[in-house]
Amino acid sequence: MSETTSRFVVSADWVEKQLGTSGFKVVDASWYLPAHKRAAKDEYVAGHLPGAVFFDQDAIADHATGLPHSLPSPEFFAVEVGKLGISETDTIVVYDGMGFFSAPRVWWMLRTMGAKDVYVLDGGLDGWKAEGRALETGTATPVTAVFKPKFRADKVIPFETMREIVDDGSAQIADARGAGRFTGEEAEPRAGMRSGHMPGARSLPATSLSTNGRFKDVATLKTMISDAGIDLSRPVVTSCGSGVTAAVIMLALESVGHDDNALYDGSWSEWGSRQDTPVATGPAEAIKA
């Protein structure tokens, strides 16, 4: 890894050298929208990185919220991740099919729950396959481990706090959805949701932060964040459709040295489906001097 690369992003060459070593764990965190026409679990069974376990983001979740794949309690998370053979002291590499779509969400979850050495595979599974690297098939049967959670509540924003942030502007809001959904020109993929964005939010589409499954270099990330109207000297809350790609912005922020950030877990699935929340349309509002 060079100084220009995110310290949280690792190459396939590096991962390949670590495979099978003590305390090194690989996690397939693939998750897709219906529009992708890909089945994450089926793809995992058909071929995954050697030794990788499958992290089901819809199963390892709080099912009582009525929202998709909400962050579960630390206790539930610890039990389920322990079943995957993962400890908070392991070196963990997370990947998804495309590179930087759903893997950053599990990277963020693991770190929020207390794991320290967590990374994302550059290029994802698609890149690994394209380079002809080894794959395993079937389902892994890991030895259960003990994951001792140390929950960082400051990294998660609940709805009531999000309302306060929108009202008082105490933190900046970075929206990872596509530009059309942000402006309200495109309908939301989930039924019953209004289109648009939270007043004061800035648009920073998650898909813009990587190219062909490769995360952009630190200098480029910093420029993109600044160009979106986000001040790196102030706190930032990230949001998206359902809390998944908001973590891609979290990865970008942490990569450029910004750690005063948190993720709004309910994201637009919560905000846009309610009738008592303000919604703005059109481009982001002009920044006041």
Rank of each mutant, 00 (worst) to 15 (best):
L67I: 04
G82T: 10
V45W: 09
F55P: 01
M113L: 12
K129M: 13
A59E: 14
V79C: 11
R152C: 12
I92A: 08
W107V: 01
L110S: 00
G132I: 07
D96R: 05
P104S: 02
A39H: 12
M109H: 10
V106A: 00
V93G: 03
V120T: 00
D58S: 11
P158H: 11
D167F: 07
D56H: 02
D126C: 09
D56G: 00
D58V: 02
G169T: 08
D168K: 10
A140V: 06
D167Q: 13
W107R: 02
G169A: 08
G169Y: 06
Y119K: 07
L67V: 07
M113H: 12
K41F: 14
T112M: 15
I60T: 01
G97H: 13
E136C: 13
Y95D: 05
V143M: 14
R163P: 01
V146H: 12
M98N: 12
V106S: 03
A153F: 10
P50Q: 01
D62I: 02
T112V: 13
V118I: 09
D58I: 00
V79E: 15
E164S: 14
L110I: 00
L71H: 13
G132H: 04
G169K: 00
A140D: 07
V143D: 15
A61M: 06
L135H: 05
L71V: 15
I86Y: 01
S87H: 07
P104C: 08
W108A: 11
E136A: 14
L67G: 05
G85R: 05
G97L: 10
G132D: 05
P149W: 09
A130N: 11
F76I: 13
I86H: 04
R38A: 12
H69C: 08
V94K: 01
K148E: 15
L84G: 04
A103H: 03
